[in-house]
């Protein structure tokens, strides 16, 4: 009786929004600002970071951090394109947007597994 596959995309969008709003800023503050400006002394040396991301939980964390915001932005971008007038190509727009998020997710998984 389900008419729509929207719930799956919307739930990924919603979860991605939470990650992008709450987790991503912390990550950016740590590695993007604190580490880059040298505030963290040697907390972010290559050896230490590599040891950290070798742990499965760290990899899972990075996977979630990368993948879910991709679906969030895909969903937003899809509706922005529709609002801008690409109503006729709704199907194609959805395939391209979510396809890019799926591709990014697979890529992230491959990189993280090989770390």
């Amino acid at each position: 009786m389900r008419h729509s596959s929207e719930p799956i995309w919307w739930s990924l969008f919603a979860a991605g929004g939470v990650v992008a709003a709450l987790v991503a800023p912390v990550q950016i503050a740590l590695t993007g600002i604190a580490a880059a400006l040298g505030w963290a002394d040697d907390a972010f040396t290559h050896a230490r970071v590599l040891a950290l991301v070798s742990h499965p939980i760290s990899r899972l964390y990075l996977f979630v951090l990368i993948s879910l915001p991709l679906f969030h932005s895909a969903h937003r971008f899809r509706f922005t394109l529709i609002d801008l007038g690409l109503k006729q190509g709704r199907g194609l727009v959805a395939v391209l947007c979510y396809g890019a998020a799926v591709a990014g997710t697979i890529l992230a998984a491959l990189v993280l597994i090989r770390l």
């Binding site: 929207e6 719930p7 509706f79 609002d83």
Partner: peptide, 18 residues
């Protein structure tokens, strides 16, 4: 609720809302 979902849970229903 099940009856209303037929109309609500569609693209022109709740899912068009951004």
């Amino acid at each position: 609720r099940r009856e209303r979902q037929e109309v609500l849970n569609t693209e022109e229903g709740i899912w068009d809302c951004t």
